[in-house]
């Protein structure tokens, strides 16, 4: 058996190789250019952001030390040696964690209710009025782009310290995001059922109820549950600006270097978030299965 490669004569090979090398070279230049651009951007940013590698190298020990101290009690023993001491504030923290969850739930629910109605107005394919759609979209873009924490700061001025400000901040941010996602779902529906219902002479809201709603419900539910997960996380830190929930205690603990309290609260938050995540993904699969099954 011989090699199946019959080497081309040099004269034939050279132009082929040159052609290939030229193509590859121009592509490599392109890649190099992008790479250089990114590096330059990073260099400029690191000047603006006062990045200092010496500080980092110097202080990185502090980070590991910090993480280590998080898991030690004041007495210097590991937190696991004395869970009662570690979780000395369990009752209060549980109440605050509950408050956080209620904030996330109420905020999500209010946002979803608003987004539900607004999304049909915003969706270009079913909106009763084009201008209305534009106005709704712009408003929601505003709600989405301004960070929730900024809303929380404003609401704290109006409503005073406490969970009310946090709930409204969550609600308004949820509204902004969900109207965008919901109206995309509405824009992707099959128009025939809507036309079918409209053709019987039904009013706009009736056409939406029987023509559009059945098609969008599972998408809405899915996005709502995902948003709820995000809102739980967000509610947990709104307390940093005094807008209620467990964030207030966490902020204080970090600021005042109550190391073991920080880890105790963080562990509670991480577990809660993990539980909520698995619960919502379970519900999502169940519900979607149920809805598809009955269609």
């Amino acid at each position: 058996m011989s090699s199946p490669i019959v080497q081309l004569p040099e004269a034939q090979l050279r132009p082929l190789l040159a052609g290939y090398n030229a193509t590859v070279r121009s592509r490599r230049w392109h890649t190099l250019l992008i790479f250089v651009a990114v590096v330059v951007a990073m260099g400029l940013s690191s000047i603006a952001a006062e990045v200092s590698l010496p500080t980092f190298v110097d202080k990185i020990g502090n980070f590991t030390g910090y993480i280590g101290r998080l898991f030690h009690l004041d007495s210097g023993r590991g937190v696991w040696t004395d869970p009662v001491e570690w979780y000395w504030g369990l009752g209060r923290w549980l109440r605050l964690l509950g408050e956080t969850l209620v904030m996330a739930y109420v905020g999500t629910a209010l946002g979803v209710i608003g987004a539900f109605f607004l999304s049909f107005l915003a969706a270009t394919n079913v909106t009763p009025n084009r201008w209305l759609s534009v106005v709704v979209r712009r408003f929601c873009e505003f709600c989405r782009t301004v960070p929730g924490l900024v809303f929380a700061l404003m609401f704290v001025i109006a409503f005073g310290l406490g969970p009310m400000a946090g709930v409204l901040a969550v609600a308004i941010h949820t509204l902004g995001t969900l109207v965008k996602l919901f109206s995309e779902v509405v824009e992707n529906i099959d128009p025939k059922p809507v036309e079918g219902v409209s053709s019987t002479g039904a009013a706009w809201h009736v056409a939406m109820r029987f023509g559009a709603l059945p098609q969008v419900l599972s998408g809405f539910v899915s996005y709502t549950l995902l948003r709820f997960e995000i809102n739980v996380r967000e509610s947990a830190v709104l307390g940093f600006v005094g807008a209620g929930g467990i964030g207030m205690d966490l902020f204080e603990a970090i600021r005042k270097f109550y190391y073991s309290d920080v880890s105790a609260i963080l562990v509670m938050i991480v577990i809660t978030v993990a539980l909520i995540d698995s619960a919502t993904s379970l519900i999502r699969h169940r519900l979607l299965g149920l809805m598809d099954g009955h269609r």
Partner: peptide, 11 residues
């Protein structure tokens, strides 16, 4: 290697 590849392609 490149010559090999190009020869194979040319065949």
């Amino acid at each position: 290697e490149k010559a090999m590849g190009l020869s194979a392609l040319e065949s």
